[in-house]
């Protein structure tokens, strides 16, 4: 049995339990004759504490869906709910605020601010959210970096860290605001095998521990197999 969007029914939690939900997402990229209909009415829901892997060939729409779910992009059609709240399509301020409160991102290329130390990078989202005092932020950032094994390198600048270390800082930063949803786009795509496994285990372990929903886009079938749910995509839709 499948959902109308083609999603397996077992992976479609009810709206009551889903921390992240979308329905009928459509997205086209490009303009004129070069326009491509990347997503074709995708629906999806994710629960807290579970890890979802989106897999599929390049160009099938995985990353596009991830950016839509992360409110980094706006769908042409369809709706997204976070923690039961409908995300407005045309209110950039509300979407930005929701990103800060509910979402954490890990990207393939780390995207650390290289002029800042590891500790400062982790503190950046907390500073914007304004939930904690400065000592609390410092303590929290230190604890997060320690949990990803970088407790001794908190004051190193971004460009003084290796690729694997940078990605671990990115994970700590994604967890900084205690988001309910963690979105990761090829988080191990730029790392060697040993670092890949370590980063993936860290990501999923910490998120599960904190009861966060994790959505990972990956090409790595081994990593996908270690997730709670695997969502294969093709031509802008989920397939069985």
């Amino acid at each position: 049995m499948k959902t109308p969007s083609g999603m397996p029914s077992s992976l479609a939690p009810s709206a009551d339990h889903a921390v992240l939900r979308c329905e009928g997402l459509h997205r086209s990229l490009g303009q004129g004759e070069g326009q491509v209909h990347v997503l074709r009415g995708v629906s999806f829901a994710a629960r807290r504490g579970e890890v979802y892997a989106m897999v599929g060939p390049s160009g099938c729409g995985k990353s596009t869906l991830l950016y839509l779910l992360g409110l980094l992009d706006v769908p042409d059609h369809g709706e997204i709910w976070i923690d039961g709240q409908l995300m407005p399509r045309d209110d950039d301020a509300a979407r930005t605020a929701a990103r800060g409160r509910h979402l954490g991102f890990v990207f393939q290329f780390h995207f650390l601010l290289l002029e800042f130390s590891a500790l400062e990078n982790v503190m950046l989202p907390m500073r914007k959210l304004g939930r904690w005092s400065l000592p609390e932020m410092q303590e929290r950032a230190h604890a997060l970096l320690t949990s990803v094994g970088l407790g001794g390198k908190t004051h190193r600048l971004g460009n003084q860290l290796s690729g694997g270390e940078q990605q671990r800082v990115a994970i700590a930063r994604a967890l900084a605001n205690q988001p309910s949803i963690l979105l990761a786009d090829e988080p191990t795509g730029n790392l060697d095998v040993r670092n890949s496994a370590m980063v993936f285990d860290l990501l999923t372990g910490l998120a599960r521990q904190n009861g966060q929903a994790i959505v990972v886009v990956t090409h790595n079938p081994e990593l996908a197999a270690r997730c709670d749910h695997t969502l294969p995509m093709r031509d802008g839709q989920f397939v069985t």
Binding site: L72, D92, T96, R99, G100, L103, F105, L129, R173
Partner: peptide, 16 residues
């Protein structure tokens, strides 16, 4: 541009 994008992903507004 990438730093701006990552700041925006963390909740920094256009005004920021």
């Amino acid at each position: 541009t990438k730093d701006i994008a990552i700041l925006r992903s963390m909740g920094y507004t256009r005004r920021d």
